[in-house]
Design a protein around this nucleic acid. Structure first.
Ligand SMILES: NC(=O)c1ccc[n+]([C@@H]2O[C@H](COP(=O)([O-])OP(=O)(O)OC[C@H]3O[C@@H](n4cnc5c(N)ncnc54)[C@H](O)[C@@H]3O)[C@@H](O)[C@H]2O)c1
Ligand SMILES: NC(=O)c1ccc[n+]([C@@H]2O[C@H](COP(=O)([O-])OP(=O)(O)OC[C@H]3O[C@@H](n4cnc5c(N)ncnc54)[C@H](O)[C@@H]3O)[C@@H](O)[C@H]2O)c1
Lengths: 230, 230
DNA sequence: CGCGATTTGTGCACCTCTTCACAAGCGCCT
DNA sequence: AGGCGCTTGTGAAGAGGTGCACAAATCGCG
């Protein structure tokens, strides 16, 4: 499940706070999910809880990290060291969660050779050698959208089977390759939609607004952290 | 639906390419979804397609933008102008999709006054005035995690009801306030999970691996762009 | 040693979302 | 004008996720 990383983060926070065990209720409220859902999720990994007590925080962390394959530190290659790439290269939140940015690549010759946070930017044509040398397991694309598909093809060609894409476009990759995308404009548009809906509901409480704002069940937008009330 | 922004992006691309109409099949393949799903989504906005022909691209763009509340350009306030904040402030992909970064705010006095892409960084204490002056409708949090909750509270206090959070933590906000979060480490961990699973399946094709790697139905992780094969 | 309080693990019902399949509608060609 | 092919819109079936409610299990305490 895609919720495991969130549980993991909450568990680390609890461990730092000194807790040895957590109840499903406690962990669930920390993550913001239903406790039954959390128990069902955890039960899929095996029975690592103790009835009457709760879950051992340290043990659960180990188990989840084992499931997620975080027992080994994974090396990621970042392609496209522009505006966003610089920020990502300097982000310390990766290393602390089991990921190491092992290579920076760019196509712009004027950027190649630049040193960023201890890493030297290399040319994207060196991808085959870099992937082999650093045993890269994940590729991150932070190039402009028109270049993203070509970069993805290059990554796939050298054996990378997991890609995180920041460019606002859909990538087509062969079966067996996993792509996740992060599109900030989409996030903002979803917020805009809810904002628009809230405004309509206030403005037209009687009429109910247009067909668009009165969609069935209130238009569930998953992944949202907190649903809007009423 | 949270898919509308993706349709919108594909439609803009089609419009730029000179297409006047699209079939549900064509648009669906461009976005990477089932055509029946797309038709059902669009039918919820009303009947804007012509049988035997398809959908009018320009009309559909207008309709979706209207639903998403993008007819007006929305002003967003960015709080936390650090590593990530700088990248976001310089991102031109917001303006082109109906959003204008109208204010930059930070708590660090040494950052206040700095000019970034034509905007001057102001102190976070000026939030009430800034929100009123610029009629902010969305707040973006790019501060370290420990400060995120306080910033969220401040945003809510001055009437912001939509928040995009980049800090790796859960925010608690009152009902009626919408929070979406972007956590890159979670994205990487989900990729790591699939990577781990692929490796296990190759290494242990007979035994089927541990209970973790053999979860029912193959552990759906929604939001993924392309499922892994077999 | 037994009992009650507490918490996990799970069967079950519900509900949403997805996908198939097809009738209805539209335009084009003859 | 009529038929034919193509595409939309939608009913129905299927799948999957969610939450309730409760039995099973464990600990602490008398
Ligand atoms: N800046 C942001 O905050 C932000 C936010 C969300 C999404 N994005 C997206 O992330 C991507 C990058 O944004 P940015 O602001 O960093 O752009 P940018 O123009 O600043 O940087 C792009 C970099 O990619 C490099 N590049 C171009 N083609 C390449 C290729 N074929 N191979 C390797 N490198 C190549 C360029 O040399 C440049 O250094 C864009 O798709 C953008 O839409 C950016
Ligand atoms: N840098 C990245 O690529 C990246 C990627 C993913 C997530 N994030 C997350 O985004 C957040 C910011 O990351 P960063 O690398 O930009 O950190 P940073 O330390 O470079 O910047 C944080 C900024 O927030 C400001 N700030 C601190 N407290 C504040 C407050 N109470 N009010 C207003 N401003 C305040 C600081 O002055 C600083 O300028 C972090 O939570 C980080 O985990 C960053």
């Amino acid at each position: 499940m895609s919720r495991l990383p969130e549980y993991l983060r909450a568990l680390h926070a609890l461990a730092d706070a000194g807790h040895e065990t957590v109840s499903s209720e406690g962990l669930a409220s920390a993550v913001g999910v239903n406790s039954a859902k959390l128990r069902k999720d955890l039960s899929h990994l095996g029975s690592y809880g103790t009835r009457g007590v709760g879950y051992d925080v340290a043990l659960l962390i180990d188990q989840i990290e084992s499931v997620l394959g975080l027992t080994q530190c994974r090396a990621v290659a970042l392609v496209g060291v522009g505006n966003l790439g610089h920020a990502l290269a300097g982000y310390d939140g990766f290393a602390s969660r089991g990921f190491q940015i092992a290579a920076l690549l760019d196509a712009d010759p004027s950027r190649v050779g630049e040193e960023i946070h201890g890493l030297v930017v290399r040319h994207v044509d060196e991808l085959p050698r870099v992937v082999a040398e650093e045993s890269i397991s994940i590729g991150v694309i932070a190039t402009p959208a028109p270049a993203a598909q070509a970069v993805a093809d290059q990554l796939v060609a050298v054996g990378v089977t997991s890609i995180l894409n920041f460019a606002p476009c859909v990538l087509s990759v062969p079966d067996g390759v996993d792509v996740r995308k992060v599109d900030l404009a989409i996030e903002l548009q979803i917020l805009s939609f809810h904002e628009h809906r809230k405004a309509s509901l206030i403005a037209l409480p009687a009429t109910g607004g247009s067909a668009l704002t009165a969609l069935p069940g209130g238009l569930a937008t998953p992944d949202t952290q907190e649903a809007i009330g009423t």
